Amino acid sequence: MVLWTVVALAVVVAGAGTALYLWADGRLRSTEAFGEYPGRPKAGRGTDWLLIGSDSRATLTPEQRRELHVGSNEVRNTDTLMIVHQGDHGTTTVSLPRDSYVAIPGHGRGKINSAFALGGPKLLTRTVEQATGLRLDHFAEVDFLGFVDVVDALGGVRVRVPAGGLRDERSGAGFAAGCQEMDGVQALAYVRARYSDPEGDLGRVRRQRQLVSAVAEKAASPSVALDPWRALPFLSASLDAVTVDRRAGVRDLARLARGLRDAAGDERRAVTVPVGSEPRVPGAGDVVVWDRRRAGELFAALREDRPIPTSDLK
């Protein structure tokens, strides 16, 4: 569920006029996402974003919960996490599996997505910083309903479903193999499916990146970019869907968008943190443990704004 890219792309699509930026900045919601703490990593080179898709159900009606297949659990976790690094070598995205088993400050070890439920954006950003050694500059969040509204405002997206199709009763996914148009509800089901995927959380990460490319292509197409009757509703839905840190503005999102648009579909610049094992931990269930050496090399390259190690290009 990586629709934070849509939010930024929408700004670029709609144009860069001063009046539009002022209007968009006034619509943009913000939250206190960062805090100082002892041992916080020093700033590296380039700019690092933490982009998340949250699975909050708080604003959903019972009918919407049934339609979206999200249940009634009120715990607020992150359904998707991604670091976006922007530097001299372009834009690189690093997906962090939601089941990554890491240290959560003040709460021992647990799945990285639970940090959001335990302490909101501040605890999540601190958890990610300490796990990666990167000092984050910006934060952006999109929730379930925002995701659906943004895809629908685009008029849907075209996605190629891999051989064998995808079916998952828990997410609502029921797709045959091949290219097909998906509306917002269908796209949400597609990227949230993992219980029927033999690769579990890692398979879902790949589908999230696939959707980023589909959204980038549709948003940049002349049918949207050159049509104000489509571009402006897209921008409006995107702004309603996103929450950013206090220091981020629409221009920051626009810069993020340009980088993501250029990187979309380039597998050399879209990676998943290297994984060492996927054990079952008492009290936590199935978890993802990072390969400490390779993950360390990857994050060191981002911190120093160097090309990422060739071994992590997958």
Rank of each mutant, 00 (worst) to 15 (best):
V159T: 05
E141S: 03
L118T: 03
E181F: 08
P41C: 13
G249V: 04
V159E: 07
D245S: 07
L123T: 14
G90N: 03
S277K: 09
T80K: 01
V142L: 00
E74D: 11
A216R: 11
R292T: 13
R230W: 07
V94F: 09
L235N: 07
L239D: 06
T93L: 10
Y195K: 14
G172L: 02
A140Q: 03
L166P: 01
L50I: 01
H89C: 04
A295Q: 02
A131H: 00
V94H: 06
T93K: 01
G146H: 09
I52H: 00
A33C: 07
I308E: 01
K111N: 08
Q208Y: 02
Y195Q: 10
V151T: 07
A300D: 14
P282H: 05
R280H: 12
A131Y: 00
P222F: 00
T78M: 03
Y190P: 03
L134A: 05
P282A: 10
V128Q: 03
R280F: 14
V273Q: 09
L302S: 04
G249N: 13
F139R: 00
E217D: 14
G106I: 04
D201P: 07
S221W: 02
V191K: 04
D183Q: 07
G110A: 07
A219W: 00
A248P: 10
L51E: 02
R27G: 09
E74F: 07
T132P: 10
V151C: 07
R160L: 10
V161L: 07
D266I: 00
V70H: 01
L202C: 10
R170K: 12
S171W: 05
A295K: 03
A264V: 08
G53W: 02
T91I: 06
R66E: 14
Q86C: 03
R230C: 11
A163C: 08
H89Q: 14
P282F: 06
D227Q: 14
A14E: 05
T80G: 11
R303F: 00
S311M: 13
R230Y: 08
A219R: 07
S100F: 00
G156Y: 00
S213V: 02
R280Q: 14
A173E: 02
L239A: 02
T132Y: 10
T61G: 06
H138I: 08
T272W: 00
V212C: 09
W23K: 09
L51F: 13
F116I: 08
G165V: 11
A115D: 08
H69A: 12
D79K: 03
I52N: 00
R160Y: 11
K42E: 15
F144V: 15
V281H: 01
G15F: 11
R258M: 12
V13H: 03
R294I: 06
L298P: 04
A173S: 09
N73D: 15
P38L: 12
A117T: 05
G46Q: 10
H69W: 11
V191A: 09
G184E: 01
V6L: 13
L60T: 08
E267Q: 13
G296W: 07
V94C: 04
R57A: 04
R192P: 11
G156W: 01
Q186E: 15
D240K: 15
Q210C: 08
D168E: 14
R258P: 01
A24F: 01
G285P: 01
A295I: 06
D312E: 12
A14H: 01
P228G: 08
L118K: 04
V11M: 09
V273A: 15
T127L: 09
R76V: 15
D48K: 08
R40P: 00
A117E: 02
F34A: 06
N113Y: 10
